[in-house]
Nucleic acid binder design. Structure first.
Length: 927
DNA sequence: ACCCTCACG
DNA sequence: GACGTACGTGAGGGTA
């Protein structure tokens, strides 16, 4: 019988090395896969050793899991200054597991231990069993394990390494390497070592004195030198370092040695993996016919086709009778174990109201596979003192049991609109990570598709052809509506567990499509990271000065009453001024002003433009109505409504952002909408002054200046505009100079109008209306604009062309917006779609950029030692913060830096991004 | 439920 | 020759 030979592959170590040494490859789906490719070739190389004399009979890939290990408990600075993994490497981590699975190799990870410790434990166990071991790694820490029967293999250098190699490199035997490493320290892992001692000195000391401890003890007797002083001064640090570099080699083996037997590698899964990523060389070597990539079908998806992915072959239909109500600890443990076994779990929380900031948690549902779903009630019943509480587990116990699972780095949590659940569970001390959000996945795939609602009920209908139990069916409507806490458990289980089940099924389909349809970049690098950031901002809220609003309300009420009297006097009768119908009748029928009808409703139009015209005609009533409208709008929509929105528990206003609200990728804000707080008029602006900072804090507002025009200049490649931005010129003035040859108030104003018109898709009639000139004159102006900035007309034509051909437009980050109506036969529908298509890449790229800035802001402020700077609001090109007064200077620098570089390194812009920052006691004062 | 109007970028 | 005139949102009030 030949001797067993165990290969232990240091997967985590390998991928970092592969990332840095290989070019940044991208597969046909736009995913970065350089490191994955390197990893795959490495496994391939190992597979080729199979059956050779030195080849493996047993093999395991070992991966790091989680970031906190016993070494952190030993030394809180351990790995503390390790920079975060590069952005285009992060999405490759999960693909490493895919690759390992594709080769049908066992993969071992264990929380609390680093891959090094797992490798050490397996090595020692195998040695005790009389096996040979080869560690596939180039990590210097692992070289401590080299001994008779144990060697290392560097697949990149194609080199086998034994004790000789260690002696050559470090000047000591492998068993003394730990002492050398402890003296040297390691800046990457933040192992302190002794200052001034590098590999050479360390080796000399250990060779001379035999061990670290001996060298430290001998230090006082050594010749006086800086090194000697340091040895004495930092002896404790050296001892700590020794413990940090020591490998833990006696952990319980997660899988017994014998289970790591190599049984040969089935071709099929490997072939599928290789063709999915387009690794053609390896595919050819596999001897497989160049199988069509699974993406082929979707590349030609038409604009109007229902977005659909086939059901995974073996997926059973939804059967609610299979769901379980979890009311015992044993059952809960069983579900947690199932989640660990699966590596992922769908999660949904049920609460007693919609507001994530003040609601009570009522129950949690989990799903680990089709029809494998459960509901864990924790807050049912007890809504009044006589109501009976059904038997259920204690909330604190459930939270404590679920916390490790929901925070485990290696278990993917899947939710539908997770922003809500993140906030609810954060209030219970749980920080869910990592996660996928199916509502965001749906949006990144199908924004603008008329058939695709992103909400769960609609998505279930579209993608699973399944009708979910509606929330209304469960709790009723209107007066008889009950809280979810009052829903009987069997019914609550059907509803809640179905949500988790459906979410998981949707996720499987979206996951495949995201990879196949090129949505990976925008999902991983823009939208997914944003979900928890938004949850945090909503949770934070902003303080609003209730008294200030109440004073304004009173002022407005008085103004409105006075105007009402005057208006009724001029009209000669009382009427409802807010009724456009009655107002139209007064203006055009009774008072006889010229204005005409409009729209198919046949009603008179009475909007601002009409009233402005009447005012010019000399109608005193028009001015009064405009003023009345302004005040009523401000009072009803802002000063009254905002007071009612102040949260009783927090005293702050918590808006809700929708990540899927705007087709272009912008956020939208509701309940209340904090993205349309007045600023353009002096009266309105007073409302902004009611958004204030807490005592000792200030509000900071940071705005991108002209970001959409800058992006247009970049995307349409307009040298004249790019130069103007590069030189920090007033862009509208520069445009005026180009178009009219001179800059004054009039020409600058007209240039500004035209610049905006360009972003929105221009028509000569539209421009004519805005500039109050004839359509012919407007046409001349547009032609001159195209002449001076030729890139613009090319951009417009190409964008429309592409939208028509493919059905969608794309931002610089690959965000798609679909335009099904771009092929409409009705002209104005089609033209409307064309104008939207011209605007979407610009507005959408701007949205992508500020979203990236938001995702990076927290870590950047944290890293700069500014944990008390809180990001509160986003208003499309503006971020609003609250921070201690003393942090203003430091925070401004960080915020500016993050915002100005937010596109990098994914997109390199040919124009600089400018950011303007202001601070003050209120949002109004910060502008 | 719909339209109109108007607040913001 | 008529059409209906800029992109993206959300909220409140009136009307049917």
């Amino acid at each position: 019988m030949t001797q067993n030979h165990l290969y232990l592959v240091d997967g985590s170590g390998y991928i970092f090395r592969a990332y840095h040494q290989l070019p940044p490859l991208t597969n046909q789906h736009g995913q970065p896969v350089g490191a994955v490719y390197g990893y795959t070739t490495m496994l391939w190389k190992l597979a080729e050793e199979l059956g050779k004399a030195e080849g493996p009979t047993h093999l395991a890939v070992v991966l790091d899991k989680g970031s906190h290990t016993f070494r952190n408990d030993m030394y809180d600075q351990y790995k503390a200054n390790r920079p975060p993994a590069p952005e285009d490497l992060v999405p490759q981590f999960p693909m490493i597991r895919d690759a390992t699975r594709a080769f049908s190799l066992p993969c071992i990870e264990e929380a609390g231990f680093e891959a090094d410790d797992i490798i050490a434990s397996y090595t020692q166990a195998a040695v005790r069993a009389g096996w040979h071991v080869t560690i596939v790694s180039s990590d210097k820490d692992l070289m401590q394990l080299i001994q008779p029967g144990v060697d290392m293999y560097d697949t990149m250098k194609n080199e086998r390494r034994g004790a000789d190699y260690v002696v050559g490199k470090f000047g000591v035997q492998p068993e003394q390497l730990g002492d050398v490493l402890a003296l040297m320290g390691d800046s990457v892992d933040n192992v302190p070592g002794i200052p001034g001692i590098g590999p050479k000195t360390a080796a000399k000391l250990i060779t001379e004195y035999g061990s670290l401890e001996a060298a430290l003890e001998a230090a006082p007797a050594m010749k006086k030198s800086k090194m000697q002083e340091n040895l004495i001064a930092h002896a404790d640090m050296a001892r700590l370092s020794r413990r940090l570099v020591a490998l833990h080699d006696s952990m319980d083996l997660p899988e017994p040695l014998d289970d790591l037997t190599l049984k040969g590698i089935p071709k099929e899964p490997l072939q599928e993996f290789l063709s999915h990523h387009g690794f053609k060389t390896l595919l050819n070597r596999l001897g497989a016919p160049a199988a069509a990539a699974p993406a082929a079908a979707t590349a030609t998806a038409s604009a109007t086709a229902a977005p659909a992915a086939p059901a995974p072959a073996e997926e059973p239909a939804i059967d609610r009778s299979l769901y379980e109500t979890v009311v015992t600890e044993e059952a809960l443990d069983r579900w947690i174990a199932a989640a660990y076994a699966e590596g992922l779990v769908a999660v949904d929380t049920e609460t007693d109201m919609l507001d994530a900031v003040s609601c009570q948690l009522v129950g949690i549902s989990l799903a680990t596979g089709p029809n494998k779903a459960c509901y864990i009630p924790v807050g049912h019943g007890g809504t009044d003192m006589f109501a009976e509480r059904p038997e259920q587990l204690d909330k604190a116990l459930v939270i404590a049991k679920l916390k490790p699972l929901l925070e485990d780095d290696s278990i993917l949590k899947i939710g539908q609109n997770l922003k809500y659940d993140l906030t609810v569970l954060r209030r219970h001390g749980i920080e869910i990570a990592p996660y996928d959000d199916t509502i965001v996945m749906s949006f990144d795939l199908d924004a603008g598709q008329s058939l695709a609602g992103h909400g769960m009920d609609e998505a279930a209908k579209t993608h699973l052809n399944h009708t979910c139990i509606s929330f209304k069916e469960v709790v009723g409507t209107g007066k008889s509506q009950i809280s979810f806490a009052e829903v009987p458990l069997p019914r609550a289980t059907e509803y809640a567990a179905e949500d988790a089940d459906v979410t998981l099924r949707l996720w499987k389909r979206f996951k495949t499509r995201i990879a196949n349809e090129g949505a990976n970049r925008v999902y991983e690098l823009v939208d997914r990271p944003l979900v928890s950031v938004i949850a945090g901002m909503e949770h934070q809220g902003i303080k609003v000065d209730r008294e200030a609003l109440s004073r304004l309300s009173a002022e407005f009420t008085a103004g409105i009453a006075a105007l009402e009297t005057e208006i009724h006097e001029i009209a000669g009768q009382p009427f409802a001024i807010g009724s456009t119908q009655q107002l139209g009748a007064i203006l055009f029928d009774k008072l006889g002003y010229k204005g005409g009808k409009k729209g198919k409703s046949g009603a008179y139009s009475t909007d601002v433009t009409i009233l402005e015209q009447l005012k010019a005609q000399g109608a005193p009533i028009a001015d009064k109505v405009l003023e009345w409208r302004q005040l009523s709008k401000l009072k009803s929509t802002y000063t009254d409504a905002l007071q009612a929105q102040i949260n009783k528990d927090t005293g702050r206003v918590h808006t809700s952002y929708s990540l899927t609200g705007a087709q272009t990728g912008r956020l939208s804000s509701t309940d209340p909408n904090l993205q349309n707080i007045p600023i353009r008029t002096e009266v309105g602006r007073q409302i902004r002054h009611a958004f204030v900072a807490e005592q000792g804090n200030v509000i900071l507002a940071a705005d991108y200046s002209q970001i959409e025009l800058r992006l247009a200049a970049h995307m349409a490649d307009v040298p004249a505009l790019k130069d103007a931005f590069a030189n920090g010129e007033d862009i509208h003035a520069a445009t005026a100079m180009q178009l009219f040859g001179e800059v004054n108030r009039d020409t600058r104003g007209r240039a500004k109008t035209i610049n905006f018109a360009i972003l929105y898709g221009i028509s000569r009639w539209g421009l004519a209306g805005r500039l109050e000139i004839s359509a012919d004159e407007a046409q001349d102006m547009i032609s001159r604009y195209y002449e001076r900035f030729p890139g613009i007309s090319i951009y417009i034509n190409e964008t429309i062309e592409k939208a028509r051909e493919r059905g969608y437009t794309e931002t610089l980050f690959g965000r798609k917006t679909w335009f099904p109506r771009i092929k409409a036969s009705v002209q104005h529908e089609r033209q409307g779609a064309e104008r939207a298509a011209i605007n979407a890449p610009i507005q959408g790229t701007s949205a992508d950029i500020i979203k990236r800035a938001m995702a990076r802001m927290g870590p950047a402020l944290e890293a700069a030692g500014l944990p008390n700077v809180k990001m509160l609001l986003q208003v499309h090109d503006e971020l609003v913060f609250e921070l201690p007064e003393g942090d203003v200077d430091a925070a401004s620098a960080v915020i500016r830096q993050v915002m100005e570089t937010a596109a990098e390194p994914i997109v390199k812009l040919s124009v600089p991004l400018g950011v303007e920052i202001g601070t003050g006691p209120s949002w109004g004062a910060a502008h």
